[in-house]
Design a protein around this nucleic acid. Structure first.
Lengths: 209, 209
DNA sequence: AGCGAATCGGAACAGGGCGTCCGTTTGCGC
DNA sequence: GCGCAAACGGACGCCCTGTTCCGATTCGCT
């Protein structure tokens, strides 16, 4: 089964690779709102080449974040296999939020995907996360009034952190997630567990909300 | 002391009023990233008129959110007068977040202001909030490892909610803030206090992060 | 009413981004 | 090596957005 790619010319394959790498890096650093030319430049190709491989910006974005989406699925898999549902539940939130903090475009891609594409994957994940939620409640660790849709709340909130510079965002996200998870426990510890240390949060605004 | 405005022509005053109202409404609904033309249209004036009253978009934004900033100062005043520092502390967070949820541009204006203009006001508020924080810790209600800068964390996180449609954002913000405040208590209740009810969160994406 | 100056607003300018066309270059099978 | 189809990339058109120009209009004073 000679797939589509292997019958293309070698330089075309190489360029496609360069483009996806450039796209990944650029989207991660600056979000989705970067000129296509910037990605082309970074990949060392002309704009036309970029457009020959990906007919539209949306297509490039979809391809670029397909792997991240795959990682989400894997994270959910692992969480559902975890014998401790609360631990699995927390790991999902932590992993997704970590990815958001590291990759600025990921949040935007996630939020779009909630309404646009990836419908299949999204629904599947939603059902599985709901199951994880159910088990975590049943085990008595997750508060009963949590609803699976609250994951969107957490994702959007954590996404807001992405407006900061990448380095600051990582630390800030960890602190935020720790706070949130504490308040999701059915029986919070007293005194509460310590938080990850604070870090200066100098928002380097290239984003306008 | 005949101020600048009253010596201008009546139609000019009226238009200025129309413009600020249009700007307030438009920024609130769609964030700062709206064309100046849209605001002009809503105000029923031409683009040139808009620019005669406000030399640049930034100036319009500054003027538009001056009142909100004023309200922030007032909120802090009230909180510092509150005999219960924890109650005051919570009210600041709740009020600011409520404003963010209702007014989409406010978040962006706040975040810019952290780095750009309003330096005087911001620093003043920061010092006063630090004092409020100190008192809330001293009263034993606020956890000791909270740092005043964490307010930025909360603001940015709550700002992420703004990507949802305004109606959904209000409910979502309330739920998020309730979660966050619970985890800020030095001695969380067991079982934790109930949350505001969940609500569907259909992100109407006109924002790209 | 009549006049001058303040004000208005549509048209135009400048910058930048998305996506396309076309002449040129390059891989690769012979 | 050779030839041709595949692939390339610079230049182009189009649209959107902030901002300015200038002829037409309106206000307000006498």
């Amino acid at each position: 089964m000679t797939d589509e790619l292997s019958r293309k010319r070698a330089d075309a394959r190489r360029n496609r690779q360069l483009i996806t790498e450039a796209a990944r890096a650029t989207f991660a650093a600056h979000g989705l709102d970067v000129p296509m030319r910037a990605i082309a430049r970074r990949a060392g190709v002309g704009p036309a080449t970029l457009y020959r491989h990906f007919p539209t910006k949306e297509a490039l974005i979809a391809e670029t974040f397909a792997v991240q989406m795959g990682r989400c699925v894997a994270t959910l898999d692992a969480a559902l296999d975890d014998p401790d549902p609360w631990h699995g539940f927390c790991s999902v939130i932590e992993k997704v939020c970590e990815t958001q903090a590291v990759d600025r475009g990921f949040t935007a891609a996630l939020l779009d995907s909630m309404t646009t594409d990836y419908v299949r994957v999204r629904d599947h994940n939603a059902r599985r996360f709901a199951e994880l939620t159910r088990r975590a409640k049943e085990s008595g660790q997750l508060r009963q009034d949590f609803v699976p849709d609250d994951i969107k709340l957490l994702i959007m909130a954590n996404g807001g952190i992405g407006a900061a510079s990448p380095a600051a965002a990582r630390a800030a996200s960890r602190r935020l997630v720790a706070l949130l998870i504490q308040s999701l426990r059915a029986h919070p510890a007293d005194p509460p567990a310590p938080l990850p240390p604070p870090a200066p949060l100098d928002s380097h605004m290239d984003v306008k909300l």
